[in-house]
Design a protein around this nucleic acid. Sequence first.
DNA 1: GTGCTATGTCTACGACTGTATACTTCTTGT
DNA 2: ACAAGAAGTATACAGTCGTAGACATAGCAC
Lengths: 197, 197
Amino acid sequence: MRPGRRRNARDTRAAILVSARRAFTRFGYDGVGVREIAEGAGVTAMLVNRYFGSKERLFADVVAATMAEPGILTDRVTKQRQDVASLGADIAAELMAKTAPGDTPLDGFLIMLRSASNERAAAIWREQIERHYQKTLTDMLPGAMAPERAALLLALVSGFQMMRQVIGVPALAQANAAALSKLLARICQAVIDAEAG
Amino acid sequence: MRPGRRRNARDTRAAILVSARRAFTRFGYDGVGVREIAEGAGVTAMLVNRYFGSKERLFADVVAATMAEPGILTDRVTKQRQDVASLGADIAAELMAKTAPGDTPLDGFLIMLRSASNERAAAIWREQIERHYQKTLTDMLPGAMAPERAALLLALVSGFQMMRQVIGVPALAQANAAALSKLLARICQAVIDAEAG
DNA sequence: GTGCTATGTCTACGACTGTATACTTCTTGT
DNA sequence: ACAAGAAGTATACAGTCGTAGACATAGCAC
């Protein structure tokens, strides 16, 4: 236990959650051990299991907490919006900001990217995406094939993050931010405005 | 060693490569052990290291082999092409065909997705992408910011595969194939035709 | 102050990992 | 036919993993 802090179940549990979130974001579900997570919270590995039951349930809690707060898509989507003319630009700006090179993003998509290899983790994500993103985005998009276009928007956003942050493709990771943002905005808007034919 | 086969270095090495490719595709770099790969080839774990040096070098060989053969982007890109007016439709058709639900894709992108959490694997992929896709695609695209647009095309393709095959988002995994293909073609073409401004 | 209980730690187990060393067995050139 | 070397195996090591069970201690009610 860390010297500074007194015994407190609520604070300790929160500290574990914070440490787990950072660790899962950076290294994925399989890339991190409970000992490492515990050390980041200043506690022992066994306390993690004591509070969360198992590593898998801890991961599910982290994912749920991540989805509950505003992300790249939701914060722009849930706000009052008369039309979708500037939605592409807003998504692009948010995406660029949250994937700035060198930062340690706590975003949910990165956890998904880094945990997609685990079947259980993928199932957890499928459910969370359905619940949070898919429905909200679909309701926003006018025209035909709204669910497909919403999912394609998700695909573009997650693919961008993977190439820019996880793989680190130079054309995206080292590009001029303003120019790339404008280009990305145009493409996002193309998905939003796409009409089935 | 498997009862049916005789001792043969070339065949054994090829069998290990096949087994490793299938295993990496399904479970990613960290999700698979050399013993498992060896068993799939009917061989002992140590023989894998004997032929390939280490698990990491084996992975690099698998990735290189995957990139060498025609994929979703390369086979349409490398062919003689006067203009890029139909490039989006070609990419979309290829992408839909190679990500048909229920099949077991041996595609390189799936290996990347499932191995992206490992830093070494990500570095191997970054180099391979630079060498194979980035340059070829960039040379094809007219107008400004060609490298960025090429990378965004890569992002879209990989994000689509992740949502459709890895996560299994229903809107993409269970969509009407023809309609989704047309929609996807339009979006790809938007990236191809996007002009910086 | 004194127990009681929640809070946290210690130790350890069984399974798994990648791979180095030493060994056996098959194939092939002569 | 027979050695020589290639092809493949067996064993083991040092490590990590998740987590179970027993133990220690701090904090609060009285």
